[in-house]
Simulated scan of single mutants.
Amino acid sequence: MKKIYVGLFFFTSLFSYAQKNDTSTVLTDITEKVKDYYVDNETYKKVNSLFQSELKKGTFNELNKKDFAALLTQKLRTTIKDEHFFVKYLENYTPEKQMSEKEKEKLNNEHNSLENFGFETVQRLPGNIGYINFKGFASPEASEKTLAAAMNFVANTHSLIIDLRENGGGENGMVLLFCSYFFDQKTDLYTTYFRHDNKTVLNSTQPEVSGQKYLHKKIYILTSKKTFSAGEAVAYFLQQYKLAEIIGEKTGGAANPVDPFIIQNQYLLLVPAGKITSLKSKKNWEHIGVTPDQEVKSEDALKTTHVKILKNMATTETKTELTIPEIKNLIYKLEQ
């Protein structure tokens, strides 16, 4: 029994040592990626200090890999104050499963198509008001037809509500394509600086789109605390150019684009690697979010906006499928 006990103790100690060594390697690799890519070239020092402190305290001991990744995400976001940091354990990942960029894009597009490329709902509300519930930005190439169909559907409405309350972001190219529907000509919106390559890219809307543009009409964007990244970008730029009124809650405050990395063939790491600068404001919404023109609770944003539009219609006696008494009756029902 004594020999068995000693053997078990030795095996447990060896396992603990291997686990600690594996954890240290992962943390070292993450620190190096932050050092090489993060938009602020001094931030890696904070990351290294954080990791060394947590290792000494044994914070990561006894954690499974999924929980370890989740805790890393939380620690990085809290310490660096950047919500774009993300670590995820890739349970079934092996190097042999790596795909070409075309294969990755095809798989991505297949997955995004199952969610209709982020377009949850497109409808016409009473009073001839367009409504688009848009939850995420897939690639512009894959989303182009669905976006055009959505915009064609609302083309004849009196005004448009774009619901971004559950929009967690996505691809930069789709931000530009979506915004292109609201600008009558090509407009330079912002630059993106990438520290690793030391290059700055100009981001502009397109002069032509495949669907019908929505111009010279009232646009309202609904936001929440969950509106994030690319979702914030649309709200920010349409507000900046006075093309839309924002109604809801202040957004998450994540402007900087990310680069993805595979760490030790086990973890996906997202590192904010660039900085967006609006050509109009010379700023962005990083850390501060997009402030609504009218702040209301997220759950009340749609009703508030619908009522606001209807009241304006009643005041200006705008022609819709509803009579003025019908509009007033609908306002009364919505406000109850």
Score class of each variant (00 low, 15 high):
residue 120 E to P: 04
residue 169 G to T: 10
residue 153 F to T: 14
residue 140 P to M: 04
residue 159 S to P: 05
residue 142 A to Q: 11
residue 185 Q to P: 12
residue 181 Y to P: 11
residue 136 G to L: 14
residue 163 D to I: 09
residue 167 N to S: 04
residue 192 T to A: 12
residue 121 T to D: 08
residue 159 S to H: 09
residue 151 M to I: 11
residue 153 F to W: 03
residue 147 L to T: 15
residue 138 A to G: 11
residue 170 G to C: 06
residue 131 Y to R: 02
residue 177 L to H: 11
residue 150 A to K: 05
residue 180 S to V: 03
residue 138 A to K: 00
residue 135 K to P: 03
residue 179 C to R: 14
residue 124 R to C: 03
residue 172 N to G: 10
residue 170 G to H: 11
residue 147 L to V: 13
residue 186 K to R: 09
residue 147 L to N: 07
residue 139 S to F: 02
residue 162 I to D: 11
residue 118 G to M: 01
residue 145 K to I: 08
residue 117 F to C: 08
residue 171 E to P: 14
residue 155 A to I: 12
residue 141 E to H: 14
residue 137 F to Q: 01
residue 111 H to F: 11
residue 180 S to D: 05
residue 190 Y to A: 15
residue 131 Y to E: 06
residue 153 F to H: 13
residue 133 N to W: 14
residue 149 A to V: 10
residue 144 E to Q: 12
residue 192 T to L: 06
residue 130 G to T: 01
residue 162 I to H: 00
residue 127 G to F: 02
residue 116 N to C: 00
residue 164 L to G: 00
residue 147 L to K: 08
residue 170 G to W: 12
residue 141 E to Y: 15
residue 128 N to A: 08
residue 148 A to D: 15
residue 132 I to G: 06
residue 138 A to Q: 08
residue 156 N to V: 09
residue 131 Y to H: 01
residue 132 I to P: 02
